[in-house]
Every structure is written in structure tokens, then in C-alpha cells.
């Protein structure tokens, strides 16, 4: 199957960066066509006239679903439990390699 839509290496690289997905150059190459396939498929929708049609973001039909401002002790995790699945912790904190202090 030959796709109409193709992505450039730069496109794939940019999308991967936005999506925070590490990809190798070889993978990038493959994705250029693979993403094109999917976009070809969805491009079918461009035939449909949607002028003036309101988008639907969810189908619950509900509005104003809120919770009261109450502390839910039962669901809170003690520190040890909160940190339980983390690879790296220190003194009750989650740990990551030093990141640039943006703020």
C-alpha cells in the first residue's frame, strides 16, 4: 500500500518531541510512512461537510458534576505508600536527575 500522506523526518522528530517519545533514527524512518497510513485513513473525514456543526467532546449529558469541599482521609496515601512504586526516592521525596531550574 502506498500512502498519499508522508511525514518528513523533521515532522516525525517534532511530533516525537512533543509527545515525549524517544525514537531512534531507524524508528523515525519507519514512522514517516506509518503515520502517513493513519492520516490517509482519517483524511477520509475531510469529505464530510461539518460547517456549523458543534463538536461533541463527551456524551455524559451531564453538567456541573462537583464534589463538596471535604477532606477524604480514606483515599489519602501515607507517605510510604505514595512512594512505594518509585524507582528513586530520598527522604520522602520522589527523585529525578537534576533538571534545569526553570522556576
Amino acid at each position: 500500500m502506498k500512502n498519499k500522506t508522508t511525514f518528513s523526518a523533521a515532522d516525525v522528530h517534532h511530533i516525537a518531541q512533543l509527545a515525549n517519545i524517544p525514537v531512534t533514527e531507524a524508528e523515525e524512518k519507519k514512522l514517516e510512512t506509518e503515520l502517513g497510513f493513519i492520516i490517509d485513513l482519517v483524511n477520509q473525514l475531510q469529505e464530510v461537510d461539518t460547517t456549523g456543526v458543534e463538536p461533541t467532546h463527551q456524551v455524559t449529558g451531564q453538567i456541573n458534576v462537583f464534589r463538596e469541599d471535604e477532606v477524604d482521609e480514606e483515599r489519602m496515601l501515607v507517605q510510604e505508600e505514595a512512594l512505594r512504586n518509585a524507582k528513586n526516592t530520598h527522604d520522602g521525596y520522589f527523585v529525578v536527575d537534576a533538571i534545569f531550574e526553570e522556576e
Partner: peptide, 17 residues
């Protein structure tokens, strides 16, 4: 995130796009 499979990566990337 490097552990996502190719299929999942494609879906994430299409959505991001």
C-alpha cells in the same frame, strides 16, 4: 516512555499531531 510498543507510539504520535 521508551518502553511503549510501536503500535502505542503510533497512536500517541497521531494523537499528538
Amino acid at each position: 516512555r521508551e518502553y511503549f510498543t510501536p503500535e502505542t507510539r503510533r497512536r500517541i504520535m497521531v494523537g499528538t499531531y
